[in-house]
Structures are given as structure tokens and as C-alpha cells.
Design a binder for these strands. Structure first.
Lengths: 338, 338
DNA sequence: ACGATTTCTGAAAACCATTTCATTATTTAC
DNA sequence: GTAAATAATGAAATGGTTTTCAGAAATCGT
């Protein structure tokens, strides 16, 4: 059907090796020959057969990304910027959505390995031993994005959840003696666990007992935020402030307040986490921790590119910057504005 | 490094051909032999070399998806469900974000072709001749998702934009003599063009002249919706109703109203398009045209799978269902509720 | 002008699976 | 029991590159 290297070689009157050299920009081929080959390539509209090349070299120029929940706006930004970063170096992205299921993750890892990916990025909230063992066994450069991981061998990029939660806590203690928390799942969410640690630190620092009834669990979705707010208000009639571990849950909570005639920020202040795009446009707009999904994507991919090129990676843990952005959903006290 | 088919063959005491047959579930191999081979595979932890297989068969089990603006919540759902649908049949997704740039699209198409993708889905708003020509030339089964395309040869799945816009128009004419329109870009947005046609149809049917000042252009983003609303109100002091061609723009517009003391829906009713997840949680929640991104994804991928399997495709244009969902942003008049 | 480098090119092996064709072993049919 | 059909297996060709090794041609040094 389409021309192969042999055809080009014949037309140009040279050998296979020479054509290959021209294609790979080898410097040991003369100008004249190179020119002949190039015109032959043009004339035949020759395109290299990638699978043959991969078979021979074991280099696929493919990066696998296994992600949990592409319908999360924050992660979508991350994914998009990862892709943009990868394509600069001519890497394509194979994406698999694990929905956060370990089984799916393992399945994809195996599948992607067979496709000969050169590198892998895993976006997950849970770090089971099984997953880590699998990653180790495949012997493919891997970066974990989002979700801190204690293991010193693993390469990871993440927001500093503890610090960010501390910042929010500091801010909220300005308003009231305690604040309600809409946390993420108890099970398997490292991010949620770490943010909780930040909160606990600050409760302790302020000598306030962190009671169970201040805490309500969500799953990061809008709906769960709505329900969690309901629960919080039922248990704490005098609640003045809420820290939600995701913007989506915060927006759900705001909606609950609206439905129940609770004024924000007059009656209650709410702070979210993520700074998704819509956070600036809700009514009231949402105070939140801004962490750049794009930055997460870029940093992770850059790190992976280094690993794939065997460049030395001095620091295998990187933090993505964050800042507390105060908007209308919380009473303003001179802190960072946006 | 890792075992290959030869190793398996040797260990099992059979030939290469036999191993290959076992792997491919060929029925012309005896139970006993098959068993021997399978245990050998297990013992060696043998994994097939995909690139060799692809080289030989020209089947990669890879589907390319080229998308424009995947940070759009609606398209995220689409992408996710495409992936889910593909993996059921053991196809992996290679994803490239074109940002809607033709140049990028062409670049990706070429790149993906080299990676030997078995099928391609293109999500774009613009259908230049160049793009269509390119798609034709690569000879790979292709489906266009989102954005109707007149060309009878091409396979496409899309929402019925004209009809949907007509539905909204009918609804809005209940409230007032004319309504403002926040449309999508004039340039290269088929969806926007088609929705405009629906609007025009109904203006004509109602014998109302559609004046230029009723129309304001956005680019589907939150910000542009804010600005467009501003423009509309400046030009039409008595504006009572707005049809926004995306939810994101509608939310931007709502925010503008809020900032300018315009009450929704008391003063102005707004209807969006897409029914993104947050639309149910904004304040007021957003009346909109619900079109399922998931359905779009599933239908497109199913169609592509058929094409790739050479099954006959009776209808190469499919519509995704839509319905008008009335929420708080528009005064209710007994129509569909949600 | 002669040997020593350097530059350029080609032949052939390697990567690993699939598939056709031929062959042997086993059944079936009569 | 023999011919004919069927089932099971293997040998070898094939797909299209990259890369090592060796050799030819050109350049250099003196």
C-alpha cells in the first residue's frame, strides 16, 4: 500500500541504512545523498512505520496517564497541560480513566506496558501497596501526580495539603471559635487525610478541641457537599464557618444554605479548595485555596520527561504552589484578595 | 530481558506457531498442547510484544481522539465516556488537545496515523475543507463528535442544535416579545451557527424582527458571558429574557446581573445550553438545554467501533437527545421540570 | 606519493509476532 | 483394512525499521 523504506532506498539509489540515517538526522551522511533521499521521501509521500521502529528500538514516544475522575475540572486542567507539555517533546498521551479503582489501575498499567509506553503518570488518591508494587515491577519511569506519597523512592508532584489546610484554618479562626469541616472520604484519600492533619495542627495550636460533630464526610462532589452541610448545621446550630475540602462540595454547601435561608457570608463563611473556574462566578463567589491544575500537570510531565531522558532528578518530590484566595463567600479580613 | 514467544515455545516444547495460536485462541490446537503452553506463559510471565504484533497485523487497538478545549465540562464527560466505551472492547485512547487550531489538528492526525491508530474521533467546532480532506486521505475510520456536518460522506454524532434552539425560543417567547442572545463565536462554530438558525426560525415564525442589538457574541467561556450580558443590557434597557448558547456564558451573565442588581428570574430570565453539572447548584440554578455529554461519547464511540469492525452503518448521522430543563433562572411555565 | 585518518555507505542481523503452506498424526467412512 | 477426510503441528516467509561491522572513498599530513 504505502511506501516503505525500501522503496525510498530504491528510488534514491541508496541502501536502507542510508535512508534510515537520513530520517534520524544522523550526521554521517553526505549532503548530496541526504538530498536525494529527501526528495525520494517527498515523491513517495513516505511515512515511517512507527510499530517497526518501536519493535526495533523499544521507544514508543508514548506516555501513559492513568487518572481518577476526568470529570473533575481541576484534574482536567492537569491532564490538558500534561498533554501540552508532552507534545512539545513529541510524546503522545494514552489516557485511561481508572475511576479510582485499584483493579482498573492495575489493568491499565498492564495494558499500557504492553503498548510499550516510555513513561507513566498516575493520578490517584489511594496508594495501596499493591499499586506501588506494580509500579515498581514494570520498570517504567513513573510519576505520581496529586496525592502525596511518603515512600521515598517514588517520584511525586503534589500540592502541599498540610500547609494549605493550615492556612485556611488560620484564616477561619479569625471568625469564630471553631469551624465546620466538610472533608473528603475517610477511605483511601491521601489528600483528604493530609488536609485533615493541617486542620488538626491548627485546632491544637489554638487550643480548641476538635469535636467529631464538627466534621462531615463528602466524596468531593456537589451533591455530597449539599448533604454534608445539612449534617453540619443539624449538629451545630451555631455554626459560623465551614472549610470544605473541595470547591464542588463548597458549592453544594452554598446551595444548601441558600435553600435554607442561611446568608453567606453574613451568617456563615465558607472556604473551598481547588479554585475551579466557576468559583469566581458563583453567587457568592467562592473563597478557596487556589492550586493550579496546570502547574501540577506541567511539573509532573517535566519531571517524567527528565526521568525518561535519564537526566538526574535531584529532588523526587515537588510541591505545587498554592494560595488562599478570598472572595465573597467569606467575610473579608485583610488577607490576599482576588 | 523479558521473555518472548520463542522462550515460551522452547519451554513448552512446541513451535512458535503453536504458541501464537494459543495466544490468539485459535481453535486448531489440542487441549493438551494449549495447557502446556499456558503454563509456560505463566511460568515465564510472558507478555506479548504489541509492537511486533502491530507490525505484523496492522491492528493497534488504539483509538485517537482529537479534541478542542477539553477543559469544557461538557466535553470532559464526553471524553470520559468515550474512553469507558472503548476500553470495553480493549481499545486504548490516545488523546490530543488541538485547542481548536486547524494546524494542531492536522499535526495530530498525522502523528496518530503513524502510531497506527485503528480509528479516530474528532471533536471540533470548525470544519475546514483542509481538515475534511485530511481525514479523507488518511483512510482511517473516523467519527466527528459534536458539531453537525453537512457533508453526506462523513460520519457524525451531534446534538440537534437547530431543534434545541427552536425549543428554547418557543419557551422564551412565552415571556416577552423578544429575547437577547448570547451566541458563540461567529467564526468557525458550526454549533453556534445552527443554534442561530433555530432562533431565526422562531423569530420569523413569531413575526418578530430579529435586530442586531439583540445579539451579542461570546466564546463560550464564563468571562465572555459576563461581558456579553453587559453589552446586551446596554443596548436593550428593557431586556427581559436571555438565551445563552452555553451554560458557562449563562453563569457569567447571571453573575453580571447579580453585580448590577438585576434580579433573576424576577427581572430577567436566562436559559443556557449544555446542562453542565454545576448548573443545578448555582444560585439561581440554571434553566438550560440538557444534552448528555456521556451520550455523545457513547454514541460516537459505538459508531466508531462498528466502523472499525466493518459492520454496516445504516445511518452515518446520529443525533443525541436533548431536553429543555427549567430551573430557577427562568420563570416557570408548566413545561418540563427538573 | 604513501600511509593514516576521517567520512560515507552498504550488507546483514536483530527486534518479535502472525500466517501460509506443507506435513504428520488421527479419525472417519465404507 | 484402505482410502479419504480431519485435526494438530512446525518451518519458513513476512512486516519495516535500526544498528553493528566492515569496507570503500575521500581527505590529510609529511
Amino acid at each position: 500500500m504505502s511506501a516503505n523504506m525500501k522503496d525510498v532506498a530504491d528510488l534514491a539509489g541508496v541502501s536502507l541504512s542510508t535512508v534510515s540515517r537520513v530520517i534520524n538526522d544522523s550526521n554521517l551522511v553526505s549532503k548530496d545523498t541526504a538530498y536525494k533521499v529527501k526528495t525520494a521521501i517527498k515523491k513517495l509521500d513516505y511515512q515511517i512505520n512507527e510499530s517497526a521502529r518501536v519493535l526495533r528500538t523499544n521507544i514508543s514516544k508514548l506516555v501513559g496517564i492513568i487518572g481518577a475522575g476526568m470529570d473533575n475540572p481541576f484534574l482536567m486542567k492537569t491532564l490538558k497541560s500534561m498533554e501540552a507539555e508532552a507534545i512539545k517533546e513529541n510524546y503522545n498521551i494514552i489516557y485511561g480513566d481508572s475511576d479510582g479503582e485499584l483493579e482498573q489501575e492495575l489493568y491499565y498499567i498492564n495494558m499500557l506496558k504492553q503498548k510499550k509506553i516510555d513513561g507513566l503518570i498516575i493520578i490517584t488518591a489511594k496508594f495501596s501497596d499493591e499499586l506501588i508494587e506494580m509500579v515498581r515491577s514494570i520498570q517504567i519511569p513513573t510519576v505520581f501526580a496529586s496525592g502525596y506519597i511518603k515512600n521515598p523512592d517514588l517520584v511525586a508532584v503534589t500540592v502541599n495539603n498540610v500547609k494549605a489546610a493550615e492556612d485556611v484554618s488560620d484564616y477561619l479562626f479569625n471568625f469564630s471559635d471553631y469551624f465546620g469541616i466538610i472533608r473528603g472520604p475517610y477511605k483511601d484519600s491521601v489528600a483528604s487525610e493530609e488536609r485533615m492533619i493541617g486542620v488538626i495542627n491548627k485546632y491544637r495550636e489554638n487550643n480548641v478541641k476538635l469535636k467529631d460533630k464538627y466534621i462531615s464526610e463528602g466524596d468531593f462532589s456537589y451533591e455530597s457537599g449539599y448533604r454534608a452541610a445539612q449534617e453540619l448545621f443539624k449538629k451545630n446550630s451555631d455554626l459560623k464557618t465551614i472549610f470544605s475540602f473541595s470547591d464542588q462540595m463548597a458549592i453544594g454547601a452554598i446551595r444548601y444554605c441558600y435553600d435554607n435561608n442561611i446568608k453567606i457570608p453574613e451568617d456563615v463563611s465558607i472556604v473551598g479548595f481547588d479554585d475551579i473556574e466557576v468559583a469566581r462566578f458563583t453567587k457568592p463567589s467562592l473563597s478557596t485555596v487556589s492550586q493550579s491544575g496546570a502547574e501540577l500537570g506541567v511539573k509532573s510531565m517535566k519531571l517524567l520527561l527528565k526521568l525518561m531522558n535519564n537526566e538526574s532528578v535531584t529532588n523526587n518530590k515537588e510541591f505545587v504552589s498554592h494560595k488562599l484566595v478570598i472572595r465573597e463567600s467569606s467575610k473579608s479580613i485583610n488577607i490576599i484578595k482576588s
